Simulated assay, not measured.
Amino acid sequence: MTFDPSISIGVLGGGQLGRMMIQSAMNLNLEVACIDPDPNAPCKNLASHFVNGDITNYDEVLAFGEGCDVITVEIENVNIEALEELERRGKKVFPQPNVLKIIKDKGFQKQFYLDHNIPTSDFVLISKKEELTRHKNLLPAANKLRTDGYDGKGVQIIKTEADLDKGFEAPSLLEKFVDYQKEISVIVARNEKGEMSTFPVVELEYHPEQNLVEFLFSPSEIDLSIRNNARELAKKVISEFDMVGLLAVEMFVTKDGGLMVNECAPRTHNSGHHTIEGNITSQFEQHIRAILNLPLGDTSVKGSAVMINLLGHPNHSGHARYEGLAEAMEITGMHLHLYGKKITKPFRKMGHLTLVGDDLTALKTKARALKESIKIIA
């Protein structure tokens, strides 16, 4: 097989995921173009070609994709019809538009799990808020917008009937809470040849109010049998989608050791950021390998890792300043990634830290202290 680095990759979305993908692509001498509605998107100064455009607009996505050999995404909210047309014109589009169409709508996504015998929690589809009162038997539950939700936005917790008024006045789903012991994630890759590879299971800890990942722990400390089952379940999900690319599959480990798929993301994901330093192959390189139909890389861990999301301070908006980073940089095994965002907003993802070492327990203690010492203010 001959590798040709002149192939042109186009990414819909120019945020931090695209930025880290470009950084990985540079090691393979690949050029990556990006389109994003933000004129100062994190990818702007790294992309070989940057287009300030609307990724939900048919004509703009079509024009952008015409100049690329392979088109991929770093966010699901894109114009599917334009991607379908690009595919008809012979362009490689990964993940495939039919997969994106299902996953970008949480209602379609949950129904897909039911139709393919993939374990998931009980749910009902809601068209408007008043319908919530008919399904009080599902409480406590989460009300999720079917589309446009991200980074914890588009989710309302409905614990009791008194919370029903918090529901969304838009198409959504009501999803019964799962009595779980752990929230985990498995990232799985699949190329056009059908070769698959999973990253080791990681555990996720969420911010109690914002539904954002606050800490990630790798490798997971759950039982080996559960870890093996989770990796096989992730393979089943990507195989049922017949998807090419990278898929992050978030799951609940129930109290009896069972698994339920919560939701998935057909792209690089927050639950794989630690792989840059913590694994032999990063999720970003693996995604590139998958969409170019290259051999998939070794996903073995190099050691223990803890990832911390760096979020904007809840009371600050404006030009970002970072308190406590200089002190954090004195810590052995600490790796800093800032996302090129000049403006901070409450709970905006501004970067992440990864701590690597031999002792996961010690790393967790360091990580919790670091979380308290670093503040992103304006």
Rank of each mutant, 00 (worst) to 15 (best):
K371R: 15
K44N: 06
K182D: 12
V356P: 01
S220M: 04
L12V: 11
F112A: 05
I71T: 02
T56A: 12
A41I: 03
G303N: 01
H274M: 04
R19F: 07
M26Y: 10
S6G: 10
P97Y: 10
T354D: 08
L132N: 05
A320K: 12
D54T: 01
M1T: 14
R227P: 00
I331M: 11
G152P: 01
H337T: 05
H116C: 03
I35S: 11
T133Q: 13
P171N: 07
G258V: 01
K345E: 15
D298N: 13
N309H: 13
K153M: 03
K159P: 00
K364E: 14
I291Q: 09
L125W: 00
S8F: 05
D256H: 09
E221T: 14
M21R: 06
S300V: 00
M334F: 12
I343K: 13
I22E: 02
I55M: 13
L114T: 02
N309M: 12
P119N: 02
R19N: 08
T354P: 09
I118V: 07
G257D: 04
E263D: 11
E84S: 10
E327Y: 11
E66G: 06
S8L: 15
S185A: 14
A162N: 14
E205W: 06
E372F: 09
Y113T: 01
L173K: 09
C43E: 01
N229L: 03
A290C: 02
H116T: 08
E323Q: 15
F347Q: 13
L336Q: 11
L173V: 04
E195G: 07
K302V: 00
P208Y: 05
E76G: 05
R368V: 09
N40S: 14
A326K: 15
H207N: 14
